[in-house]
Write a protein that binds this DNA or RNA. Structure first.
Length: 216
DNA sequence: GGCCAGGACACCA
DNA sequence: TGGTGTCATGGC
């Protein structure tokens, strides 16, 4: 079976270096991580642009902003009855615990920062790890639907099909640097959007010779 | 008109 | 503990 290291190498060779996460600040990455929950990135971009146009892509401003106004600004990202509360929960947490200074959160040990993020309403394991990896520069591996689908098709199965089990597997198999994990997640998303969807396009797929997908 | 997208959570058996 | 429904807009 092809190793995760070789998968990474093949994807990198095929798709090249990935510019991820597309954002100007750490807080913008955090906002994007919440807005993209169950939502295509194109819709998230509209919401981000809307926040920027209103000069509202700011921790303190979102923390103080009326919920309904925030809901209007991020409307295009969907779930507008859910996501405003999640953004405000995050902002409130950062203001209350770090005086709004993300650098202070960054200085915490990875495990501590992760458990604190997970305690925030609306931040689950994937969102927490996206924030840790891309906003805080921590060395963590993000397990998303794409990752599980790709490696399942490559013949992998973990004993317990849980987020933590998949993550532990990749951490045990990979060279654990922030850069590697950032690139790997980006490459998997790029690959999945381009080819490895629910209805995959197997022509010219760099992993086709290793894939167990029936249509191949 | 249906499917899917860079998830999380409540609820139920 | 695992499965399922819900939240929702927008592109294809």
């Amino acid at each position: 079976m092809i190793s995760p290291e070789i998968v990474y190498s093949d994807l990198k060779k095929h798709y090249g270096w990935q510019q991820w996460w597309p954002a100007e600040t750490a807080f913008e990455i955090m906002v994007g991580a919440i807005l993209t929950q169950g939502t295509s990135w194109s819709n998230v971009e509209k919401a981000i642009d809307s926040l920027k146009s209103a000069n509202a892509l700011d921790l303190e401003i979102i923390n103080e902003m009326p919920r309904d106004h925030l809901s209007q600004l991020i409307y295009s990202a969907g779930f507008h009855n859910v996501k405003p509360d999640r953004l405000k929960s995050l902002s409130s947490y950062l203001m209350a615990n770090f005086d709004g200074k993300i650098e202070a959160l960054k200085r915490l040990p990875t495990g501590t920062a992760r458990s604190q993020l997970l305690a925030i309403d609306g931040i689950g394991p994937e969102t927490a790890d996206a924030i840790l990896l891309y906003a805080l520069g921590k060395s963590v591996f993000i397990v998303d639907t794409y990752t599980k689908r790709l490696f399942t098709r490559l013949g992998y199965a973990v004993e317990q099909d849980s987020y933590d089990s998949w993550q532990a597997f990749f951490v045990s198999q990979m060279h654990k640097t922030t850069y590697t994990f950032q690139q790997y997640h980006a490459l998997i998303v790029e690959h999945s959007k381009a080819r490895c969807k629910s209805k995959p396009i197997c022509n010219s797929c760099p992993l086709a010779s290793h894939c167990t997908f029936p249509s191949k």
